[in-house]
Design a protein around this nucleic acid. Structure first.
Lengths: 342, 342
DNA sequence: ACGACTAGTCAAAGCGCTTTGGACTGGGAT
DNA sequence: ATCCCAGTCCAAAGCGCTTTGACTAGTCGT
């Protein structure tokens, strides 16, 4: 069933039917109702590809999903997507997701942008100096970035959390509790958020003339296994850290396990603060020792980004170009005063 | 840059350029190379919407993603998608994902199917008697199901794991170890896999004239928090279970925590077998007491489904219509003989 | 009674691509 | 010289939609 058939059925022109469906004013009320009724009965749905071809828009947001054998999926991706979807569903938007070799994200993004089947693009997993930004600047597809990238003016629309401040604050708290030996379990070192978090820690430490040791910094994918391994490594240091900063509750999961296995008490022998993206599958308050966290909902960020993206496409762009969200520092039982005698 | 402009640039007709690009034989080798060169230089990309309109195909797989405020994202979705993507990227396929109100999945799927911008559909989170199957049967879009659905002949293409057998085997093992009081921490009760797993447990128990008590069965979303709560509930029973079957390692995470908090020893006081979807973020072998599991990689299932879907679209359908994968039962330390005296 | 609107409708062009059905070469066979 | 054919190429139709520009009534003011 297509427009032509439908309009023939109704004895109307395609023009009128199309206008009736798209809410144009110059259609008789009765005619419109007749059309709507017929649509309901026949189950007619306009062909999106044709709509897009005719209008240049079809209500879609494009994303690139890095994938490869061995490249493991990221919980954070799903959670964020879920937030995007929560808003998108209200506006009848959908997503076009291009899987891509992780080494060719620029190319994949470019192809997606030029394929002409997305109205706007969304970028995440930003790198230190991200080449995708330069590429996108040469195209005319609107886009928005989750995170930021070093090495160029932030002259692009983004939503980021203040990673540096979050980890600065967390470190500061641990310093106030008397800790002097710090470790950081971070995400992959090429990612922007990891760099900023590290900077935050370093800045707070520098105020007390302390340094973050290389031995005490890990950059790994954020899985429980890497958390476990990293923590085991820290615990084997002769002058082992008493304060741990951790980029994800998933990493913290492994870390806590290592701490327990070493017979140490979290919050007494060793303190830990993790960043909490508010993943539904893993709540820091339910850890055996509830975790002190810097919290910022990934899902909420998704909702917000979808709002801005869709808002700008619908020309009701009342949103700021750039937003920096502050994470909350929530103190629970995994942080305590530095142990004496070590 | 579009075909018209490109062909003008080359002094060729659109026909020839199009054919050169799509690998038709009736085009001179030199001409083809000239075209390819121009494409490289101009960065021309065919408009997918137009291609789809003209051919009816555009290399896309459609999915529906249930989303709502409060409806939390599912790790398993991301992991599966990642598998789909791994295969899709090899064939230059992409995904079209429609977010949908969880109460209107049938409608969302229908709209997606009729929108004319997907070549095939993929269904998951199957329900006991899933209305989506009946709906899809009336359309002509090819589809494939991850899981199965009760209540109709399996006359549709699917890939499923043998949930019943997996949980039957797991239960049997626990019975052999002397356990008599069982509990099941399951997924939402309307989902097909949950029903089958329960049946598997019940079948094994029935052979010993045992029943799975309602008090000892929970149906919840699969998050660590629900695992924790369910386990706490089990432990408060006066005649508490010594053997736990668990539908996900994520649930197991919470369960183990509850066990530890109660001062019980996993593998001694209480045994647990979880189903392991091989999520990269949570490995059962890294639990403080490594978990005995029924294992089947969700990601591998994704790869396989993408193969079959794309294979059937490209008419090289050498794949069986229906596949039932057997999960592996992997024994680790979380299972032991039933404790004496209780 | 006549022009000037307005409301409602339509035919046709156009979006960028693929594909059908020729058309035009220059041999090789007859 | 004629015919055929393989090898190349092209013009034009068509995919299903939106949108422009025009056309018909009917209405109103004068």
């Amino acid at each position: 069933m297509n427009l032509k058939q439908l309009s023939k059925l109704l004895g109307l022109s395609q023009t009128t039917v199309s206008r009736a469906l798209n809410g144009y004013p110059e259609v008789n009320k009765e005619t419109r109702e007749r059309v709507l009724k017929a649509v309901r009965e026949t189950g007619y749905r306009p062909n999106k590809a044709a709509q897009r071809l005719a209008t240049g828009k079809a209500g879609s947001i494009g994303l690139v999903m890095p994938t490869a054998p061995g490249h493991h999926s990221d919980v954070h991706f799903g959670e964020f997507l879920s937030g995007l979807g929560e808003e998108a569903v209200r506006h009848d938007f959908h997503f076009v997701i291009t899987p891509s070799d992780p080494d060719d994200e620029v190319g994949a993004l470019r192809r997606l942008a030029m394929s002409g089947n997305v109205d706007a693009l969304f970028l995440a997993y930003m790198r230190g100096h991200d080449p995708r930004l330069d590429m996108l600047k040469t195209l005319s597809v609107p886009f928005i970035v989750h995170g930021r990238s070093f090495g160029r003016e932030p002259d692009y629309p983004f939503l980021d959390i203040d990673n540096e401040a979050a980890f600065y604050d967390a470190t500061k708290l641990l310093l106030q509790l008397g800790h002097r030996r710090f470790a950081l379990m971070n995400g992959p070192s090429h990612l922007d958020f990891a760099i900023r978090r590290k900077n935050g820690v370093a800045a707070a430490l520098a105020e007390r003339d302390l340094l973050l040791d290389d031995d005490c910094t890990t950059h790994t994918p954020m899985t429980d296994e890497h958390g476990l391994l990293a923590m085991e490594q820290f615990l084997q240091l002769e002058d082992r850290p008493t304060a741990i900063l951790c980029s994800s509750t998933v990493l913290a999961l492994g870390a806590v396990r290592a701490i327990n296995q070493a017979g140490l008490k979290l919050g007494e022998d060793i303190s830990l603060i993790a960043h909490d993206d508010v993943l539904p599958l893993l709540k820091p308050e339910n850890f055996s020792v509830p975790l002190t966290t810097t919290r910022s909902s990934l899902r909420a960020a998704g909702v917000r980004i979808a709002q801005r993206l869709i808002g700008s496409l619908k020309q009701i762009n009342i949103y700021p170009q750039q937003e920096l969200w502050r994470a909350e520092l929530i103190v629970r039982a995994s942080t305590g005063p530095a142990p004496m005698g070590r």
